[in-house]
């Protein structure tokens, strides 16, 4: 079926049907030569430049309704999340609960302890981290997770990268990093380190390629770019936030204790 389809497309393109086709060298044009220099640029960024990216990120975030706060360390972030949980009320129902990624940075926030005083449970996707073969999800686990994620009013994730130009969060699908955490709860909190900020899509794509052994592993089964807060203009062309996604998005950037000023 698919061969027949492709054969017809080839015919429509006016190509000889049975001629030997050379494998497409998709990498050969423009981009290929540029990537190493992009990667070097990313790797050699000094603290001053990183701070510049953070400023840019905050500037771009402002009109989008995205709230970006720099914090010195994980403790400060945990305290900020504690305050958020205290002040915000759930959109649906009464009980407060929080869902979070199983991710080294998020686990270092020790949220379960931080929120215990307020009696707010923190749900993590089940299964041990980093051992894919050991954690095939049974249907019941997944059903339980669904219920929990629908109950949770705050979802806490990290992000692979932040794109400064557009104030975009980049989230990739991985074990323990359930994608529902960033879309189902009414409030999304993303925690990342300042070193995860990069300039734009071009840098992102260069990094994705450099990490992957084969281009088809660059995106794998999923990646999401989030730029701002869920919005619609579909009723009388009036902008309304939110539509279906989170109504608020907070980005906590960990800047480290002493942000040094690098050479300009």
């Amino acid at each position: 079926m698919s061969e027949e389809f492709i054969r017809k497309v080839r015919w429509a393109l006016g190509r000889p049907l049975h001629a030997r086709r050379c494998e497409p060298n998709l990498r050969s044009r423009q981009g290929a030569g540029k990537s190493p220099s992009i990667l070097e640029r990313i790797q050699n960024r000094c603290d001053g430049e990183r701070q510049g990216l953070l400023d840019k990120f905050r500037e771009a975030a402002h009109p989008l309704g995205l709230k970006v706060y720099p914090h010195r360390d994980t403790e400060a972030v945990a305290a900020a999340i504690g305050a958020l949980v205290r002040t915000k009320v759930p959109e649906w129902g009464q009980a407060k609960s929080v869902a979070a990624w199983r991710h080294p940075l998020i686990e270092s926030l020790r949220l379960t302890e931080a929120l215990a005083a307020q009696n707010v449970p923190v749900y993590f996707p089940e299964g041990p981290m980093g051992a894919p073969s050991a954690c095939r999800f049974a249907k019941v686990d997944r059903q339980r997770w669904r219920e929990r994620i629908f109950q949770s009013y705050i979802g806490i994730t990290s992000a692979d990268f932040g794109l400064a130009e557009t104030a975009t969060l980049v989230l990739r699908n991985r074990a323990g990093q359930a994608r529902s955490v960033a879309i189902v709860p009414a409030i999304h909190v993303a925690v990342l380190e300042v070193s995860q900020l990069i300039a734009d899509l071009q840098e992102l794509y260069a990094l994705l390629y450099s990490e992957a052994a084969h281009p088809r592993e660059a995106v794998t089964n999923g990646m999401t770019l989030i730029t701002g807060v869920s919005t619609t203009r579909d009723i009388g062309a009036v902008p309304v936030r939110p539509a279906h996604g989170p109504r608020e998005v907070y980005v906590y950037v960990i800047t480290g204790p002493h942000p040094k000023q690098g050479p300009s």
């Binding site: 299964g127 557009t166 995106v219 794998t220 999923g222 770019l225």
Partner: peptide, 26 residues
């Protein structure tokens, strides 16, 4: 007239066996 839309999702397949959510079939 946006620089990037709010959500851009790249989807390459179903949920991997170790992932909590996402479709079983794509």
């Amino acid at each position: 007239a946006q620089k990037l839309a709010t959500y851009i999702s790249y989807i390459g397949g179903p949920r991997a066996s170790d992932q909590t959510d996402g479709p079983d079939e794509f």
